[in-house]
Computed example of a mutant assay.
Amino acid sequence: MSRFSQLPSNELFKALESAASKDTLPDTMTLLDAVRFNAEGLLPAIAQQHDTKEVLMMAWMNREALEETLATHRVCYYSRSRKKLWRKGESSGQQQHLKSAALDCDGDTLLLEVEQTGPACHTGRRSCFYLSLNDKQAHINSEPLIDPAELYGNQ
């Protein structure tokens, strides 16, 4: 048993700040108990293409979605609009397969390195971050790879 498993969950991430890599870290379930989900029980999750490091999207996970993702390596999010689990690609076929997952230093944001199949964005673009901003004007920095009507079959 590690020294971290004895800590209250609100102190765990603070204690990890000074942990040496050789320390025996807490198991995953202990860490998940300490994750700082928001008032709705959700955690922001940033999906990044594992090999190019391109940021693809940000979505939300509840604990169930996070546990499923870690167990199956197929990324599962929580849909706030549908109020249910959403397995990326279940309607479009554009899945994300987990390569690695990392919590930030506060335990309140998750970074997922994924293998993305096709576009990540519901607009048919590779990335959801296609609207670039500067101090004067916005512009679209990428075109859709696939027509959204093809992705979703005019649902």
Rank of each mutant, 00 (worst) to 15 (best):
S132A: 15
P26T: 09
A120L: 11
L145C: 06
A138N: 08
D23S: 09
Q49C: 12
E113P: 02
T117Q: 14
N154G: 00
V75K: 03
C128D: 04
V75N: 01
I140V: 15
K53Y: 07
I146P: 01
D33M: 05
F129H: 07
S100R: 13
A71M: 11
D51R: 14
I140F: 03
V35I: 13
D33P: 03
L42Y: 02
V75E: 01
L145D: 14
R125S: 00
S92L: 06
L12P: 03
R125E: 02
S92P: 06
A149V: 12
C105P: 09
Y152H: 07
K53G: 05
A102S: 14
Q48S: 11
N141W: 00
T72Q: 09
N62M: 05
E90W: 07
L42A: 04
M1I: 13
S132T: 08
L112E: 04
L111W: 08
S142G: 06
A71N: 13
Q155K: 10
S92A: 08
A120S: 13
T52D: 04
L145S: 09
K99L: 11
K136Y: 11
Y152A: 03
T72I: 08
W60Q: 12
I46N: 07
Y130L: 10
L70H: 03
Q155F: 08
T117A: 12
V114R: 06
H50M: 00
C105H: 10
R74K: 11
V75Q: 03
C105V: 14
G124N: 08
L12R: 06
G153W: 00
N38T: 11
S21W: 10
L103Q: 03
